[in-house]
């Protein structure tokens, strides 16, 4: 799981063009949106697309999104669980 969290952090940096940010600067358990990284609702939707494209997991509404994007760990757990369910 820690490897997957690291992978997600690198993808978040690439997807959102966080040019000067290192993966370790992104909190694993702290809030992802509304922290000093300055990410907002559009970034969340950009990540929704990345997760669907790269992992085949859809996050189709705001309620699920708010929960899943609480932290990088919650995102990793959700993606992992959905992929297991789909047998991938």
């Amino acid at each position: 799981m820690e490897d997957f969290i690291g992978e997600l952090k690198r993808k978040i940096i690439d997807t959102l063009e966080l040019a000067d940010i290192q993966p370790e600067e992104i909190p694993t358990d702290g809030v992802l949106i509304g922290n000093e990284l300055g990410l907002d609702s559009i970034d969340v939707l950009e990540l929704v697309m990345m997760i669907e494209k790269d992992y085949g997991v859809k996050i189709e509404n705001r309620e699920v999104g708010v929960r899943v994007f609480g932290s990088v760990r919650s995102l990793a757990l959700y993606v992992d669980e959905q992929r297991r369910r789909a047998g991938r």
Binding site: I42, L45, E46, M49, E52, K53
Partner: peptide, 9 residues
């Protein structure tokens, strides 16, 4: 992406 993916940004 065969009309699968678009960027909200």
């Amino acid at each position: 992406s065969a009309e699968q993916f678009t960027s909200p940004t």
